[in-house]
Simulated assay, not measured.
Amino acid sequence: MTADDNNTVCSNSSSFMNLDDIDVSADGSPFLRVLICFIYSLVCAAGLVGNLLVFFLLHRAKPERKMSRMNFFVLNLALTDLLFVLTLPFWAVDTALDFSWPFGDVMCKVVLSVTVMNMYASVFFLTAMSVTRYLSLASALKRTDAPGSRSDKWTCAVIWILATVATLPTSIFSTVSYVTGEKLCLLKFPGGQDWLAVYHIHKILVGFVVPISVVSVSYTKLVCLIHTKSMKRSSKVTRSVTILVLAFFICWMPNHAVTLWSVLVKLDAANWDRAYYVAHTYVFPLTVCLAHANSCLNPIIYCLMRPEFRTRLGLLMHRPGHTADV
């Protein structure tokens, strides 16, 4: 699939990549399209089961654990991941149809917006979990009360608002458009390459660099605090949050790295060469799949890392009639 050099658009199937970056996109390879459809279907199934399982386990948890600060953030993280995996069937159909969007303009805006919002909301909630974990331990050592559930609810409300605001450019400029005879759900900016570069830079900074920087500072302080005080219980809880953050970093870093490469090419700060073409044609679609996989990894990691959830899962698998709380 190709695009006219004068068209400044972003493909949904390539995680909002500019279509005029390449001469032949991933849809030129039937095997790659089949692989992407398979991964989307797998992530959708695993994400639905995993995130619904998190809801169930939190519902069955003891009241004091159910309303704990960390579990409240996990509940919201599972909600945004669940909303996202519901968009994957649309992307799978779009990919199967050679990236031809059959669902109309309204669904294009909705599905594309939810997809982008998931990225922002996920990293914002993971950042809040990291900061909250550090503040909780610091407050415990100082024998002061940490912020209660009311402040957690306000924090979650602010995160959802910030994620919505960050997604506004996607909601406004997403549209169904014909590009070289293909009907695509994409982002189309009236300002050309400059606006597209700004959009990508904003996405990388707000959705990755700034949150990861905050998380890094929080965890540096947290690790020092745990090692200094030998807090074994806190260390176990912190480990689960750490792995969640690392999973987000590993899943999303390749996608943002290739996107940054695209921005540098647009700004003539990097050369257009064979390596760039191969990366965007064959590697970039796989980085999109890896990024999407994060939405099914979060609940799986959290459930497997928390002892009380592992206990509950064991009861469900071996004694389905048992309703004891964890």
Score class of each variant (00 low, 15 high):
F72H: 10
V326A: 15
H292F: 08
I226G: 01
T180E: 14
W252L: 06
S171I: 06
D21H: 12
V158M: 15
F284L: 11
A275E: 14
D20E: 12
W252Y: 12
W272N: 14
L168C: 13
D273C: 05
L42Q: 01
K203L: 11
M305H: 07
D23G: 12
V241Y: 02
T80W: 13
T144E: 15
S15Y: 11
V54K: 02
L290I: 01
S216V: 00
D23N: 09
P89W: 00
L290P: 01
I243A: 01
S218I: 07
L260E: 03
A45W: 04
V49L: 13
F173Q: 02
A146I: 08
V43F: 02
D27Q: 04
T155S: 13
L186A: 14
F73Y: 15
N294E: 03
N298K: 00
P190H: 04
S15E: 04
S218Y: 06
K153F: 13
T132Q: 13
S68P: 11
F84K: 00
N271W: 00
G50W: 01
L225Q: 06
S240C: 14
L77F: 08
R69A: 12
D23T: 08
I22D: 06
P299T: 00
G50R: 05
F56Y: 14
N71C: 07
Q193M: 10
K109C: 00
L83P: 02
N294F: 05
S295K: 00
T228D: 11
A291H: 03
D21Q: 06
A257F: 14
R312E: 15
S41Y: 01
F249L: 15
A128W: 11
L196N: 11
P307R: 07
V176I: 05
K232D: 12
F124C: 10
F173R: 01
N12C: 06
T281D: 10
P102A: 03
W272T: 12
G181P: 07
T323G: 04
V217A: 13
Y219D: 06
R312A: 15
L83K: 03
F248D: 02
